[in-house]
Nucleic acid binder design. Structure first.
Length: 414
DNA sequence: TGTCCACAGGAAATACGGGGGT
DNA sequence: ACCCCCGTATTTCCTGTGGACA
């Protein structure tokens, strides 16, 4: 009886999915799921619509001296996230490789992706791995050893070597050691003609560099502007064509997504994510992708961002967030001091059987939550009653509930 | 005007844990 | 098995401070 019922439901669902699908090929909505050749195919199409034409022209101008046997400068690529720095460079450098092969010029390029913050050690080790110079280490090996291994590996390669260092500013402390190695030491130790390509979000990035290294660094710059609505429309159309059923998209949807995205960030990845979310919602509700759905999707995406960030955060930070929420609930008003939060935190730690940090460390956690704008905090002075940091919870109730539930689940308190 | 609260936040010290060498 | 090295996490110690209050 029960199973009969269940069976009907599933069959119904299958029928629906086959009969009026919104999504044709889900994989093209999520970049991580594409295999390399598919990615390149998508890129090819994007660049065929003249998006990022300017930038590619500039890149060509910079690199073509290679074919006269010249040695171009290093190059810095600036642009916000999602403006296609990585994609454009990948596409361009692959092209360059092919052209080089046709003309019998030895070119190699390596892409060092520092999308998450790493210390100098990690960065060097990653680079060494990329060059197959050594295996991956957690720690316990000196920086010098890694440098030597890299140099040894490259000792008999005379051609061009292009190192594409993505998101350079992600190197935490000791940045100078890493940069000094790349800019000053490496070129002198190996026969290859080294061309460094730096990608970064911050224009002022080289300013924090050790002056001795900086003066050594000769480079050109290219700036990637955020995509405008027209570019985004091109990009979205390609995705729609590959991933969705044209009939299921109501007119104006693409334009709206492009407009929204270009208005507040110009980030292509986010635009595609918005498209994907809209499509998922449409499929769930068995309706077409219509304009109002886009707004809903945008809102959900926003909420997802917060809970996803917290989900992957360290345990202590999650505990701190939960404590703040509990403390706020206890006080009923939304303003609490660090002391209240710390009390709640102590209780929470006991409850969840998590090791409890000192007040000092807890203060840092609060600072971190503030940084990611889960909370807002500011110093207030109550005169002779001392100074305190006031914590204000400003996220929508709905989202707080979601986050709180998620954390409790994580600590198995449900 | 000076005092003094109650915490912030910097610096140094310490604990920790994974890894290599022997 | 033991010790040393290195990067990270946390603690300990300490100085600094805006403004109500006397």
């Amino acid at each position: 009886m029960e199973s009969e019922n269940m069976r009907r439901k599933i069959e119904d669902e299958i029928e629906h999915t086959i009969a009026s699908p919104v999504i044709k090929n889900k994989r093209f909505l999520e970049d991580e799921q594409l295999i390399k050749s598919e990615q390149l195919a998508v890129l090819e199409e994007i660049f065929n619509t003249n998006v990022r034409d300017m930038e590619i022209t500039k890149l060509s101008k910079h690199f073509t001296p290679i074919f006269r046997n010249d040695h171009p400068y290093h190059i810095a690529v600036w642009g916000k996230t999602g403006t296609g720095k990585t994609l454009t460079l990948t596409y361009f450098l692959n092209l360059l490789l092919r052209l080089g092969a046709e003309r019998n010029i030895q070119i190699r390029y390596k892409h060092l992706d520092l999308s998450t913050p790493v210390p100098c050690f990690r960065a060097l080790n990653d680079l060494a791995c990329l060059l197959n110079a050594m295996k991956r280490y957690q720690r316990g090996i000196s920086l010098d050893e890694m440098m030597l291994a890299i140099e040894a590996k490259l000792a008999d390669y005379p051609g061009y070597l292009i190192l594409f260092i993505d998101e350079v500013d992600n190197i935490r402390r000791d940045k100078d050691t890493f940069m000094a190695f790349l800019i000053r030491r490496l070129p002198q130790k190996i026969p290859a003609k080294l061309i460094l390509v730096f990608a970064s979000n911050h224009l002022d990035w080289p300013d924090h560099l050790d002056p001795r290294v900086k003066s050594f660094l000769k480079m050109n710059e290219i700036i990637f502007k955020p995509y405008d609505a027209v570019d985004l429309q091109h990009i979205l159309r390609i995705r729609v064509e590959k991933a969705l059923c044209q009939e299921a998209i109501e007119p104006g949807v693409i334009e709206k997504i492009a407009a929204l995205a270009s208005y507040d960030h110009g980030d292509a990845r986010k635009a595609v994510a918005l498209l994907a979310k809209s499509a998922y919602l449409a499929e769930q509700r068995r309706i077409k992708v219509k304009l109002s759905l886009v707004d809903e999707a945008a809102k959900e995406l926003d909420m997802d961002r917060y809970s996803a960030m917290l989900k992957s955060a360290p345990k202590q930070l999650q505990a701190a967030m939960a404590s703040v929420i509990e403390a706020a609930k206890l006080q009923n008003n939304k303003r609490i001091g660090t002391a209240d939060a710390y009390d709640a935190y102590r209780k929470f730690c006991k409850k969840a059987r998590v090791s409890q940090l000192s007040g000092r460390a807890f203060g840092d956690l609060i600072g971190e939550l503030d940084l990611y704008s889960f909370i807002r905090s500011r110093m207030i002075s109550r005169g002779r009653y001392g100074r305190a940091r006031e914590i204000i919870l400003e996220l929508p109730e709905e989202l707080l509930k979601k986050i709180y539930g998620m954390i409790l689940l994580k600590f198995q308190l449900r």
